[in-house]
Amino acid sequence: MVIDRRKFLALATIAAANVNAPPLLAQDLSTLDQIKAKKQLRIGVTSAEPWFFKDPLSEKWTGVGITMGERLAAALGAEMVPVETTWANAVAALQANQIDLMLVLDPTEERRKAVDFPEAPLFYYAMGALVPEQSPWQSWEAIDKSGVRVGVTLGTSLDKNVTAMIKNAAISRFSNNDEAIAAFAAKRVDVVVQFHPALVVQYARLKLGKVVLPQPVIPVATSAGLRKEQNTAFRDWVNTQFLELYKAGVPNQLFRTYLQSKGVDPSGLPGLIAESW
């Protein structure tokens, strides 16, 4: 068969289109079907103890979110695969099908426009503050004074809350929790606002300042982000899992176990079950 130049170019164009086309799996299968087909549950991870911690030597990830992800993956007969991201980029990573689930992601109104969330909360935590040891600050009003420097992690729900609450103090935003704590240690900020479980772990490591729950105490329900899709099977499955795990007190158990692994006595500390506060 003789192929002239015009036919050759047409065939080459078709071939190139086929090479660049997305895989059929990603096009046609729901998230739940993809997980079962690949036997992998990809969860987003970022430096944020006690949820996610990467050992600098072994590069192994541990934390409450990791253990929770492993439990969810096992229930699906899959392997949990950590994929590094940031809180600010997590929504985009979900939309781009780079991850299947971002645990400990708060369901803000802005995020709900872009990604989906199960109805059931994963657990609850409260807004806390790491302040100088001799500081008298016991309320958000006392912290919000001209000359006070407040550090917060960029792209988190805390960033949004602090921005709405703080009108007089100066706000500095950092790419992750560790950077915010390092700024506190270097005295570049006077206060670091994070959720109380993260601050407990940071304080135990830093042994600097003190952790307070400024009044009024603001409990926040956290959840997990998923891709928006017409097939809600994965969202419904995650919702059922969260209901069962919360009822059984599993998030609190994982939190206490993680604190103990870091040499922190969890007795007397607020847990992740709001009904026990």
Rank of each mutant, 00 (worst) to 15 (best):
A221C: 03
P197M: 05
E70F: 04
A93H: 12
P118Y: 03
K38S: 14
F8S: 12
N161A: 14
A180H: 01
R188G: 03
A74F: 04
I143C: 06
G155D: 05
W277A: 14
T62A: 13
Q98H: 11
I218K: 03
P132A: 09
I66Y: 03
L213K: 02
G249E: 05
D116P: 03
Q215N: 13
K247H: 14
M127K: 11
L243Y: 11
Y246Q: 14
R173W: 07
G65S: 15
M68T: 15
K262I: 02
Q138W: 06
L105Y: 08
A10W: 07
F8W: 11
N177F: 11
S267N: 14
F184S: 01
K187P: 06
G263T: 01
V2N: 13
V162S: 04
L57I: 14
N20A: 14
F52Y: 13
N252H: 08
D144N: 15
E133H: 12
M102F: 13
E179W: 11
N252Y: 00
Q253W: 01
K167Y: 02
I35Y: 02
V162G: 08
L154R: 12
L213Y: 10
A274K: 12
V211T: 05
V91K: 04
K160R: 13
A17K: 01
G271P: 00
R5C: 07
W237I: 01
Y203G: 00
V83I: 15
S135L: 07
A73K: 02
N168M: 12
T85S: 07
A12S: 13
V238K: 00
W137H: 06
P50A: 04
S30H: 06
P22L: 09
T240S: 15
W277D: 10
K207T: 11
F184N: 01
N231D: 15
Q138S: 13
A142R: 15
W140G: 00
A183W: 01
V191R: 00
F195R: 06
Q34C: 11
D236A: 10
D178L: 12
R112D: 05
Q27W: 07
I14C: 10
V115P: 09
A120N: 10
P219E: 06
V104T: 10
Y258G: 05
L41Y: 09
A37D: 10
L24C: 11
D28Y: 15
L29G: 03
F184I: 04
K207S: 10
F174H: 08
A92P: 07
W137E: 01
D100F: 05
N168A: 13
V81Q: 04
A182R: 09
V104N: 08
A164D: 12
A183E: 01
E229F: 09
A120H: 09
P270C: 06
L9Q: 12
R205G: 11
S172R: 14
T46D: 10
N97G: 09
L122Q: 10
L105W: 09
V220P: 01
G225N: 03
W51D: 08
K60Q: 13
L57A: 15
D144P: 10
L24H: 12
P197D: 03
W87G: 02
V45I: 04
W61V: 02
